[in-house]
């Protein structure tokens, strides 16, 4: 399977700055790509377009030749966000939020260090690092083919960061899931990815 963006352009409002113009990227499911750019260059926006959260003004995003917006139900391209507390419903117990991804094997929960005790709690009762583990688990549903990671470990301490990536890299390799990762830390990108793409047009 291939995820590709062809000549995509994007800006938030007519008259506001052009965030992306005629951008191209191609991802195979067996590669891990790092995306590098200064802040404000539209990395998050690009990931959102690739995952179908935003529509590009022009150009196309295709998964296996089919537009990403045509995939109904579980989307094979899943995005993990920088701030987990914004993507978890504060009024739902974490087990319920997690269940939205379908049945997850025990391996994933154990690998991410999610304790049974956390499942019955609400997001406000756990730390950002603990919540991010749930968001990562939720993005690893059975049908995930590409994972888009938007600075997912920036807010975590170094040890948690190493723990999470240690598990994720093994999981991705085993299931042949492709990765597109954004980080400001070059050293981290070098540890994680097989190649890097620079977003420097504008």
């Amino acid at each position: 399977m291939i995820l590709e963006a062809n000549d995509i352009s994007f800006r938030y409002h007519i008259g506001s700055a052009q965030i992306l113009s005629q951008f191209n990227i191609r991802l195979q499911r067996d590669e891990r790509v790092g995306l590098v750019a200064p802040s404000g260059y539209g990395k998050t926006t690009l990931l959102k377009i690739l995952a179908g959260y935003e529509n590009a003004d022009s150009g196309s995003v295709l998964l296996d030749g089919r537009p990403i917006q045509d995939y109904k139900g579980y989307c094979p391209v899943q995005m993990i966000f920088q701030h987990p507390e914004t993507v978890l419903n504060p009024r739902l117990k974490l087990a319920v939020s997690l269940k939205e991804a379908g049945l997850l094997p025990r391996r994933i929960l154990d690998g991410l260090g999610i304790e049974d005790d956390w499942l019955t709690r609400y997001p406000a009762e756990l730390s950002g690092g603990e919540l991010q583990r749930f968001c990562i688990a939720r993005a690893l549903g059975e049908q995930t083919v590409f994972l888009l990671a938007d600075e997912i470990s920036t807010m975590l301490d170094l040890i948690t960061q190493a723990q999470i990536w240690d598990f994720l890299l093994k999981e991705l390799e085993m299931r042949h899931i492709g990765l597109l990762a954004v980080s400001h830390t070059m050293e981290l990108i070098q540890r994680l990815t097989t190649r890097t793409v620079t977003l420097d047009q504008r």
Partner: peptide
């Protein structure tokens, strides 16, 4: 527009 509802949509809920 909240994050968790957008995510739920992408998870096919």
């Amino acid at each position: 527009h909240s994050g968790y509802i957008r995510v739920a949509e992408k998870l096919g809920v």
